[in-house]
């Protein structure tokens, strides 16, 4: 009798598990395309704000490679998106991580034009203090826009810092750590692009599979 009741309980529990999983699986199947599309559109809108309008004719989101440069880009591996016009390179978009934000890592999106100047920098996600460090968001202040057009020679390398450290870039009242680490990360990303040169524009090699592509 006891065995039977245990079996029955197990059966009921199993039934619930199976129906729960099926329900989730069916919904997932139904909305999966839409979610992928949302992510694609959101990323595309972000890229458009930091890439020069009309200069590229490819879709950078479908032309990307994975690179590993922990020292300069702050994370084990990161994507590099390539914007081209025909065969000519136009710009690169990198997704470095600022490892030393005031309250944890800050994710950036940086575009570097082929002449080495910055097309723009945006903060993708952060945990900085609201009202102080969060002025790095474009929605909260214009600070992040000051990077547009800068390069490793403008300002010169030793001026790539916040004003308190003798550099060129503003800090915020009450928050120096956040701007300092972002300026540093942007500089490092520029150094990385400079080091790699045109290698980053090479066509995708079979060794670097661009999987998860959907046409």
């Amino acid at each position: 009798m006891k065995t039977r009741s245990i079996l029955l309980a197990g059966f009921v529990l199993g039934t619930f598990a199976i129906s729960g999983v099926s329900l989730v699986a069916v919904t997932h199947e139904a909305v999966d395309g839409r979610i992928a599309d949302n992510q694609y559109q959101a990323m595309k809108r972000k890229l458009e704000t930091i890439l020069p309008a009309g200069r590229a004719d490819n879709d950078p989101l479908r032309d990307h490679i994975q690179v590993a440069a922990r020292d300069l880009l702050g994370t084990e591996t990161t994507q590099v998106y390539r914007a081209r016009k025909g065969e000519d390179p136009v710009a690169l978009v990198l997704e470095p991580v600022v490892p030393d934000g005031y309250a944890g890592p800050i994710k950036l999106l940086i575009s570097v034009l082929h002449d080495g100047t910055l097309g723009g920098v945006r903060v993708v996600s952060h945990h900085e203090t609201p009202g102080l460090g969060d002025k790095i968001e474009e929605a909260k202040s214009d600070w992040i826009l000051a990077f547009t057009g800068k390069s490793l020679t403008d300002p010169p390398l030793d001026k790539w810092g916040v004003k308190r450290d003798g550099g060129e870039f503003d800090q915020f009242t009450g928050a120096t750590i956040t701007p300092r680490s972002i300026v540093n990360a942007v500089k490092n990303a520029l150094l990385y692009v400079d080091q790699q040169g045109d290698r980053l524009f090479r066509p995708v090699e079979p060794a670097v599979p661009a999987e998860r592509e959907k046409s």
Binding site: L13, F16, S19, G20, L23, V24, T27, V31, I35, N38
Partner: peptide, 19 residues
């Protein structure tokens, strides 16, 4: 189980329609 299934559903639906 019931709650977890519905939360996952809501999460998927939000991702699809209120991204």
């Amino acid at each position: 189980l019931v709650i977890a299934s519905f939360v996952t559903l809501v999460e998927l639906i939000m991702q699809a329609f209120f991204y």
